[in-house]
Design a protein around this nucleic acid. Structure first.
Lengths: 119, 119
DNA sequence: ACCGGTACCTAGCGTTACGTTGTACCGGTA
DNA sequence: TACCGGTACAACGTAACGCTAGGTACCGGT
């Protein structure tokens, strides 16, 4: 199915996760569950963990281990200053790209008939 | 620079090019120039050609060779039925993803960590 | 003792955009 | 003639990212 979605998530999933962490700290299993609950039903669990490892290594998040009554200890990720900056960059890039694409979609609705502005 | 943009283009650039071709047939060099003109200044020329080869092999476009007075013959790409269907799928995926991300941005603006209905 | 839910992690794979380089055609200029 | 820059296409290797498909470990209920 979502082969299209798979490719489209590249580059955006990191921003999505950082945005989630900006709202409140969370751990991997929780983030995966939340995203699946919000429509990303095919999201692989391993994808989120790999992403979290990446953003941790880049210094965008701080990590705290919190014991759980239900299983192994949770690794709770908190967005730090560098992560906030990265997230801001994400929004900038997203806004530009989104604007370009929506512009294409708007063109689509009004570009029906004749030839204009050919060269 | 646009490392962020590079990753975000994965999965979206194909849809962007298909949308351009929906408006009117075009050839590689022209598409690259148009995209650069519209803000994708760092877009590599080779990227567009590789993408066009891909969509051609998948049968989303028809190709016609047209002689040029300025250089080698142009390969003009025209969106066909399969391409139109693929483009429709792109818009579906994009609309969903865009909606989710904009939802996250909307949440960001109301940063009271008070519990309120977020949906 | 077993199973399912919780919670984490990893190796290899396929796809995609980039960097770089090369080919070929043409008109203008020294 | 010889060279250069703009036009136009193509190929090769690299890096990044999400997915597949596993595995480890803790816990309570049957």
């Amino acid at each position: 199915m979502g082969n299209q979605m798979t490719e489209m998530l590249k580059g955006t999933l990191e921003g999505i996760v950082l945005a989630i962490l900006e709202a409140r700290p969370a751990y991997g299993y929780e983030i995966t569950a939340q995203l699946r609950d919000e429509g990303f039903t095919d999201l692989a669990e391993g994808t989120v963990y790999a992403l979290l490892v990446r953003v941790e290594q880049r210094g965008f998040v701080d990590v705290t281990k919190v014991p759980s009554e239900k299983g192994p200890p949770r690794k709770v990720y908190t967005l730090n200053a560098a992560g906030t900056a990265q997230l801001a960059e994400f929004w900038t890039t997203w806004t530009f790209l989104s604007g370009r694409i929506e512009h294409l979609r708007a063109d689509r609705t009004s570009t029906h008939q004749q030839t204009e502005g050919d060269d």
